[in-house]
Amino acid sequence: MHQLINKMGDQKGSSDEILHNLFTLMKIYKDGRVERLSGTDVVPAGLDAETGVLSKDVVISPEPKLSARLYLPPKISAGRKLPLLLYFHGGAFVVESAFSPTYMKPLNLLAAEANVLIVSVDFRLAPEHPLPAAYDDGWTALKWAASHAAGDGGEEWLNEYADFDRVFLGGDSVGANISHNMALRVGSSENNNNSVDGVKINGLFFNCPFFWGAERIGDEGDIPIFVSFFDTICRVALPEPAGLDDPRINPSKDPELAKLGCKRIIIFVPEKDPLKHRGWLYKEALVSSGWRGAAQVVEVKGEHHIFNLNNPTCDNAMAMLKKLATFFHDHNP
């Protein structure tokens, strides 16, 4: 994110046919053409020699097409199952995928260090599929995972290794936004005992969460080009006339926030991330709403947005993995 300042060009030099310019990510033209500038590369699944993590790709739903990449850590004790993390990638709702090289190393490290089974969901992207498509895909993936709770689902890794008493949702940037909206849907559903098909969400993991709003908080307004960038993300991903304070984008404006369907949240906010104030505001809004849970914010000194994706083995990234290992394996929250 911090690199955008140096890479953003003057929009006056762009073609008059450009409707939205997301700079290093995407250009959307007035004739409907979409040009993705990053996040389109993919890498195959398989055995990671460094961590011993084994990954594979699965189809969750044929229509709409929904796939995921699964990560299985090497440390599996006989008779003991692993926490299950449904992970949602970042990319401003418009780029990246579950099969991107951006995520392969970080998720291999996360699976190995935190000893969790990961389902990384490849949700549909805007503008071709505006919100709530990504939320709907997240819900489909969550119900698919829950269908394995009795040990007779269609995916052997979930049947054999997943502990459905320890199910988590998480992701980076907009992936954290998706995780929030999934948990809120869980808690808001009628007659479900705060669960999905009998499976409860143990906790949420947010890394550099993307939330936004019409009013500036903290020092958000100090760099107008960031404000324009985030405003454009919201317009592209959510083109309906809901505005920047749509509760899906700005949870602090959601009167139903107390219904969030989990009891624990850990939020990582880098010190130099323009979005860090939104992570802090999220916690404050939860407390004010009357939500009965525990939220922890970890401010990562000296780091920028998605720092762990840019440098997965830096000291702060590895420290985050250790905190997550404790979070996922805490049987007495």
Rank of each mutant, 00 (worst) to 15 (best):
A295D: 04
F206R: 02
T232K: 11
R248L: 02
T232F: 04
N207M: 14
V227P: 02
F205C: 11
N207S: 15
P209N: 03
E220M: 11
Y282E: 02
M320T: 12
K283T: 09
D245Y: 00
R292N: 13
F268L: 11
P209F: 03
F226G: 05
E240H: 00
G218K: 09
R235G: 00
G290H: 08
M320R: 13
S288Y: 04
T313Q: 15
Q296G: 04
F205G: 01
H277T: 12
D219W: 03
T313C: 15
G218P: 02
L257Y: 01
W212Y: 15
L286D: 01
D222H: 07
H305Y: 10
L281G: 06
C234I: 06
F226A: 09
G203D: 07
S228I: 11
L238R: 12
Q296R: 15
N250Q: 04
I266N: 03
L324P: 13
P241M: 12
W212T: 10
A214K: 05
H304W: 08
I223R: 06
D273M: 07
A319V: 08
L286I: 06
K323D: 14
N311M: 08
M320G: 14
A319W: 09
D219C: 05
D219A: 12
E284Q: 14
F327T: 00
P247Q: 06
I267R: 03
A319I: 10
F210W: 15
P251Y: 07
